[in-house]
Amino acid sequence: MLSRDEILSKIKTVLADSLAVDEDDIRPESTLTGDLGAESIDFLDIGFRIDKAFGIKIQQGELFPENAAQDPTLVKDGKVTPEGLTRLKARLPHFDFTGFEKDPQLAKIAQIFTVDALVKFVEAKLAKQG
């Protein structure tokens, strides 16, 4: 089982390759879109690269929230509903929703997509794999 630091190191390589950023500029608290310049299509690329780097199989919607805006029980008037927050937290436990839930505008959800969340995701996935 890889340590947290080893996972972080591999995640940094994944992100440096995918987003053409310097590994030294990648910190656990860095946000993928705000700090590292990821665009929507990069999320698919990052998922593929994590799959390969760690030998895991990520199902669609397991790593990042998908199609949330189209589900009226999740999002209403551009904001994630209380029920939506509960469901997203349960479905995506690797993300820290603490800051986001104070002002849960869907447009701001990218702030929870941090490097640390990816590390937590991989850690949990590897632990499940045993």
Partner: peptide, 12 residues
């Protein structure tokens, strides 16, 4: 390269 199946990715 990377390819997207656009019907699966651009919901809405």
């Amino acid at each position: 390269l990377m390819f997207s199946h656009i019907d699966q990715n651009l919901a809405g």
